[in-house]
Design a protein around this nucleic acid. Structure first.
Lengths: 247, 247
DNA sequence: TAATCACAGATCGTATACAATTAGACTTAC
DNA sequence: GTAAGTCTAATTGTATACGATCTGTGATTA
């Protein structure tokens, strides 16, 4: 469903599924993934408070494991923890948003080049299927899912490049980007990314690293320019209302 | 003592001291820093098991807070956690070592350029003092401290560049580099870095971003080439014996 | 009426207790 | 003598309980 194979690496375990959380064992990982998924699909708005008791009740877990999950998410940048105040869905500042896309513009083109040079036919097919799914979700009006898929397209490239360290960095950056887009996206067009992703796929199929690097760089600079980085007012709402049949 | 001012940012709190741990509140942070310091100074060998009970007893804390610390360190890459088996000081594989220095060679030159363009006179002085301290420690034979200082020189540059996201990445990479050097360093010369660091300082003082970027890139490539990336055999030892008056 | 203070409820930080899993050692069989 | 199997001790995973801190409400006073 989510195209996270990684072609050459054979390390099984917690790191394999989706957003690799480097550590939290047992059930914490499940909750991490569910919360991350909910945040990435914009079902949990930035700034929303994630009370330990409340989250634990929703997912049927104890505060111990919830705490571990929240800490892991905090480290990924998706959650902010304030001492003696609790955890909140992160609200990237305009400056952080700027920095995130600067970092992406530096790292992802390099990964795109590496991926283009070593990509296999099977991975090419997977990327193609991924783009189709993204296209379909976009046309079906499910923008949350479309955005989530758009993000995992980028992480898929990092996995194909088979550079674990940078892939980890990109994953964190992509996650933050999702929040940033939720807060600061100004464009209306829904077809914003399809073109670049198709162009990337073409460069990949031709194993043209140079072109892939250039396309990816332009793509991210373009995304960056699609943001309206002005401060937004805060909002508040309840958690139980938005997370119902998710446990 | 450790040159972590950061010239322009005014965010106080947990992030200010040394290795910014994004989250763990209260005493977990203390233990994080102490463990990190011990690992970075090679007082805790890679592969050493960090039992929760044992660490808790050494630092006079409960397993709860120790667990939080270990998870945070695991996310920084300094510790590996295996489910139902416990935490260990990380043993970067040769491949991980390679990837870490590739990432550093990509990110740090950019930061060096940014730092050179905006560095203040006060920061220049601090960097100079830092180099002197490094030099002194090196000549005093305290290689652990010298290496630690050498690492914090790089993080200081990231702080001066005032790019929080990339600075965080670099911090993690530097930490891992310390482990990598402990495992794979092959050169004998102790004066390995002084020259590059001095050259960097000169470029900074002239606000020559171009030169700083180039020097930093060569410097990291040079460090990378100083590694002997062949597999090492494992070792085992006790924790209590090496951490005595540290609580 | 507005501002200050005090109190109560709620939430987080930490410690402890119990359950589950693992690792090592001993026994036993071949 | 070696290998397999079982059992016990140790360690981690999880839950719960208690103490500390914060936030919001209400009373009191100028």
């Amino acid at each position: 469903m989510s195209l996270n194979h990684s072609n050459k690496n054979q390390d099984a375990g917690a790191r394999s599924l989706e957003g690799d959380f480097p550590l939290p064992p047992g059930r914490s990982l499940d909750i991490c993934q569910k919360l991350q998924s909910a945040i990435l699909q914009h079902r949990l708005e930035p700034g929303l408070k994630l009370s330990e008791d409340e989250v634990g009740e929703v997912y049927g877990a104890s505060r111990t494991v919830v705490r571990a999950s929240l800490q892991a998410l905090a480290h990924s940048g998706l959650v902010t923890i304030e001492k003696n105040r609790g955890a909140f869905v992160a609200r990237p500042t305009p400056r952080e948003a700027h920095e995130v896309f600067e970092a992406r513009a530096l790292i992802e083109p390099r990964l795109a080049r590496m991926a283009a040079e070593t990509i296999s036919d099977a991975d090419l097919e997977r990327l193609k299927a991924h783009i189709d799914a993204e296209h379909a979700a976009s046309h079906a009006g499910d923008m949350g899912k479309a955005l989530s898929l758009s993000g995992s397209f980028h992480t898929a490239i990092a996995d194909i490049a088979d550079h674990k360290i940078m892939a980890q960095m990109v994953r964190s950056l992509i996650s933050r980007s999702s929040l940033i887009i939720a807060l600061y996206w100004k464009r209306v067009e829904t077809t914003c990314e399809s073109h670049s992703h198709h162009a990337l796929l073409k460069a990949f199929s031709e194993h043209d690293g140079e072109a892939a690097e250039e396309i990816q760089k332009s793509h991210i600079v373009d995304l960056h320019s699609g943001l309206d980085l002005r401060n937004k007012e805060e909002k508040t709402m309840r958690l139980s209302d938005v997370l119902s049949g998710d446990a």
